[in-house]
Amino acid sequence: MQTLFYILAGTALVAGALVVFQTHPLRSALWLIVNFFAVAGIYLLASAEFIAAIQIIVYAGAIMVLFLFVIMLLNLRQPEEPMPMSALGSRILAVTLAVTTGFLVMFGLKQAVIIPARTGPPGLGNTESVARLLFTDYLLPFEVTSVLLLVAIVGAVILSKSRLK
């Protein structure tokens, strides 16, 4: 199980690095799908089967299809032009900042004392227990989510209309 986790984590990291350092957005999108599948495998290892299925259906399915559709719709032939030399300093600064933040978070997590729970409720993470919690304790956020999706649909339709008044 530990070995499988490391294999999936390595896949996710390599695919994530390739997303950032590919020149063409289409290749980035395809590597991002690999990243999502690796993370879905880790969710399966963490006994979150429902979330793993949602990850593949919503992220790797719906969202990435939307991305690929827009990339092909815009038809960007020319690859991204290299940055001017004046921006090199800010680029190095950005990478340093991100890596430093990552190390600070790691350092903070090392200080924390975490005692894992030994036993949990039976059937943890399967669809039934997720649904039970979703429709009892988290009913109000669930309903608010539907309003959010409605707003997103209306916003996307308005923005996509050819003539904005």
Binding site: A117, P121, Y138, P141
Partner: peptide
């Protein structure tokens, strides 16, 4: 780790 479904929510 904490065997709770709330994180998945």
């Amino acid at each position: 780790t904490f065997k709770a479904v709330d994180g998945q929510m």
